[in-house]
């Protein structure tokens, strides 16, 4: 069964152009065929391989896949990159992730768009996660756009996460470059002793627009949630970041939005705290500012020119 998948994947891989490989490398650190389970979706078509503990099943009623991790699976990873190389393609997928009890896995997702045409290329991913009790999940999602066409590159991810009792989830969502429009919606439901940490890193430039709405519902006793957002807005780009914590029990939550603003960019950061229990402890910090002049000067005294100093500071900030 597995052998058959490998062969079919091998054939498919031979069709991949250098451009595909480059995109896959940028968004998912993929150099060739990944180890273990994976699903690679190119221009609306998926190619996949399951492993003994991780099953990838195409959905029957709509585009997308179910990724089912057996309880107790340890130290395995799944790669599920998406690449779009045709201008004018609008791709919509529904993916469901079920992480079994006490499993400990890493999922590397991401979407790379190469648009060299005039039409909009769009990928809308609706990801739903059920992380069962005691499980640990690390989810990494990287978004990247390239191509010299006038067609816009649009990515709209929707993420719904249920963190069951005692589960731990870390989600790192990065938009590297070249995405013209993005609206990301993230909703999380965290149960007893469950913990969720969302790290968001975003860079916008040119005329790009990015909107991020994150809501963490802290439902259970001793649930905890954290949203750490680091963003850079350059040129005429525009960012709106809304992070809401809703504490319904004895729980703790923290939101931190830290942004560097440059050129004629605009950033709005709106943290929101709602406590529906007297034992909820919710905090937020938000800061927007230019690159600190003394940081630039310091790096210049070490021999960097101004542009090198800016690049160094931004790369470090978004790391």
């Amino acid at each position: 069964m597995i052998a058959r998948y490998v062969i079919s994947v091998g054939v498919v891989f031979m069709k991949y152009s250098p451009l595909d490989s480059k995109l896959l490398e940028t968004i998912a650190d993929l150099h060739g065929i990944p180890q273990g389970a994976f699903n690679i979706r190119k221009d609306g078509e998926g190619f996949r391989q399951s492993s003994a503990n991780i099953e990838i099943i195409p959905k029957k009623d709509k585009p997308g896949i179910d990724i089912v991790v057996k309880p107790g699976t340890k130290d395995e990873s799944v790669h599920i990159p998406v690449i779009l190389t045709k201008s004018g393609l609008k791709d919509l997928v529904y993916n469901t992730f079920i992480i079994g009890e006490d499993a400990d896995v890493t999922i590397i997702a991401g979407c790379g768009i190469h648009n060299s045409g005039e039409d909009v290329s769009e990928h809308d991913g609706i990801h739903e996660f059920f992380v069962k009790s005691g499980a640990r999940l690390k989810y990494i999602e990287r978004h990247y756009g390239q191509g010299d066409g006038t067609g816009r590159r649009v990515l709209n991810p929707t993420t719904i996460v249920t963190v069951e009792n005692g589960a731990y989830v870390e989600m790192e969502m990065v938009q590297i470059k070249g995405v013209d429009n993005t609206v990301r919606n993230t909703d999380a439901f965290i149960h007893d002793r469950g913990a969720l940490k969302i790290i968001e890193r975003l860079l916008t430039h040119g005329e790009q627009e990015a909107v991020s709405n994150v809501t963490l519902n802290l439902l259970g006793l001793d649930a905890s949630g954290q949203v750490l957002s680091r963003t850079v807005a350059q040129d005429n780009s525009n960012q709106l970041f809304k992070a809401a914590l809703v504490g319904k029990n004895r729980c703790s939550g923290h939101v931190e939005c830290d942004s560097i603003i440059m050129g004629a960019a605009q950033i709005r950061a709106i943290p929101g705290l709602t406590a529906e229990s007297a034992e909820a402890v919710l905090t937020h910090e938000a800061a927007i500012g230019r690159i600190a002049g003394d940081q630039l000067i310091k790096l210049m005294t070490l021999g960097l020119d101004e542009q090198e100093a800016i690049d160094t500071i931004l790369a470090a900030f978004l790391r």
């Binding site: 830290d258 600190a292 790096l299 070490l302 021999g303 160094t312 790369a315 470090a316 978004l318």
Partner: peptide
């Protein structure tokens, strides 16, 4: 000396 976010000691020594 100014503080930096994300720049590590080793990196700054290599810049120097």
């Amino acid at each position: 000396p100014p503080r930096f976010k994300g720049i590590q000691v080793e990196e700054v020594m290599r810049i120097a």
